[in-house]
Write a protein that binds this DNA or RNA. Structure first.
Lengths: 213, 213
DNA sequence: TATATTCTAGAATATAATTCTAAAATATTT
DNA sequence: AAATATTTTAGAATTATATTCTAGAATATA
């Protein structure tokens, strides 16, 4: 708790963010395998020694890019959810609104951060392999915790299906990510954002309970 | 059309399949990056020269594993769809059945081929990067063609929503893949197969048209 | 049987990741 | 403020690994 234990460098985070953004650009253009440490050195301005000192190895740099992206998305999702919770609505509308807002968070973040999203979709193995997996898991766990507590009364009232939170995640994110992945790889022509409402409707119909008809 | 143009080696495919399965085992255990050519040589029994002669480079081996897996899945999906088409059903039931059967195809293939599925989920970048992307696209395109023609009358009758086929794919595969990905990475405890029916129901509710209520 | 083609082998080479040593910068203590 | 410790940067040296290359074996074709 003493002052010394507070992270000392205030510039550090911004600097790290800068490095990760430039690394992302390299990875997006050449893939993780195709990006050499030399390329990262040139793109970021940091020396080879520095990169290894701070990250450990190349995969860990990719992993850090991944985490940074997920945190960024998490922040947006949290913001959307907070705003919703401040809005006074009848329970039935609240249920529908909540599902849709979570879809919007996914669609909007991906739309605004296409490179980051593409990287995340295409490089999941990198984090599964690394220790950062736990970091990530803790982040989503706390978010899920909030959601569980939020949906409980809506489930009890019959406005939402009684399913484990993992399936809520699947129905909310799954279709968005599936479409986004193909779109970001150039295999679909219509932008994800165009289907924002259709995807939200679909998730709502998949998850609404009997009392919501 | 002459006999010479028919692929000459009958053993070749089985042998290649064998090699790809062993390569998959390596990749699953150590990741693509963590697997060296030497490891692949030892695991498959083929020499370094042979591997390069047949595949070109390491990524191409991974890419071939990917394609093999997707074709395997495609065959199962096609089988399920054919069986359905032979079943005489009233249009309304047919709509629901079709959506659910496609979900089952996904769930069942993943359940039976967990290593292959995990590999596919975690290494999509490899194929996006390679030329094999087109091979894959053509495969799914012909399958999608069948689906489009199949759903047309059901859409016209109001039993299914009028959405582009890409969104059908998203609502059918998205939630399954999202859950499966986490499950196969050890982040969820309940097996995918346990949620087979719930996932099918969800997809159906997301896609059913007004005439199906 | 002779000739061409494809396939296998493994050593040689090239490329790129990682480590290492020392110097510079920054922080901490006296 | 000077002395000391710690963290960070640098880039050359090393190690690991992918890829290429040459020659010989196997197989197909004429």
């Amino acid at each position: 708790m003493s002052r010394q234990h507070v992270k000392p460098h205030s510039k550090t985070h911004a600097k790290k963010r800068e490095i990760l953004e430039r690394a992302l650009a390299c990875f997006s253009e050449h893939g993780v395998t195709g990006t050499t440490i030399e390329m990262l050195r040139d793109a970021t301005g940091a020396s080879v020694g520095s990169l290894y000192h701070h990250f450990g190895n190349k995969e860990a740099i990719a992993s850090a890019v991944f985490i940074e992206g997920m945190n960024d998305f998490g922040a947006l999702a949290m913001k959307y959810l907070s705003e919703l919770m401040e809005t006074p609505l009848p329970a039935k509308d609240m249920a529908e609104r909540a599902i849709k807002v979570m879809v919007y968070a996914n669609v909007d973040w991906i739309t605004r951060n296409p490179d980051w999203a593409r990287f995340v979709f295409q490089n999941r193995r990198i984090v599964s392999a690394s220790d950062d997996d736990d970091v990530l898991r803790k982040g989503t766990a706390s978010f899920y915790g909030k959601l569980i507590e939020f949906k409980a009364p809506l489930v009890a009232a019959g406005y939402l299906k009684d399913l484990p939170i993992e399936l809520y995640g699947a129905f909310i994110s799954g279709p968005v990510h599936d479409y986004a992945r193909h779109y970001l790889a150039g295999r679909h022509d219509i932008p994800l954002s165009e289907y924002r409402e259709i995807l939200a409707e679909g998730a709502w119909h998949a998850l609404k309970g009997h009392g919501a008809h």
